[in-house]
Simulated scan of single mutants.
Amino acid sequence: MRLILCKKAILVEGDSDELVLQRAYRDNNNDKLPIEDEVEIISVGTSFLRFLEIAECLEIPVKVVTDNDGDLESLKRKYNNYLGKNKKSNIEICYEEKIHTGSLTIGKDNKPFNYNTLEPALLRANSLEKLNAIFDTKYETEDSLLKYMKSNKTECALKIFSSQDKINYPEFIMRAL
Rank of each mutant, 00 (worst) to 15 (best):
M1Q: 09
L3V: 09
L5Y: 11
L5C: 10
C6D: 02
G14W: 01
D15P: 07
S16M: 04
S16V: 05
D17F: 00
E18V: 05
L19Y: 07
Q22D: 07
D27Y: 02
D31Q: 06
D37F: 04
E38A: 10
I42R: 03
G45K: 09
L49V: 14
L49R: 09
F51K: 10
L52P: 01
I54R: 08
E59K: 14
I60K: 04
T66W: 01
D71Q: 10
E73V: 07
L75F: 09
Y79N: 04
Y82D: 05
K85V: 14
N86L: 13
K88F: 02
N90G: 04
I93V: 15
I93K: 03
I99D: 08
H100R: 13
T101S: 15
T101C: 15
G102E: 13
T105S: 10
I106H: 04
D109F: 14
P120C: 12
L123G: 12
A125Y: 04
A125G: 06
L128A: 08
L128F: 06
K130E: 12
A133R: 08
A133L: 09
I134Q: 07
I134G: 07
F135D: 02
D136I: 06
T141P: 11
S144K: 11
K147W: 04
K147H: 08
K147L: 15
K150P: 04
C156E: 05
A157I: 10
A157L: 10
L158A: 12
S163Y: 06
I167S: 05
Y169P: 06
L177S: 01
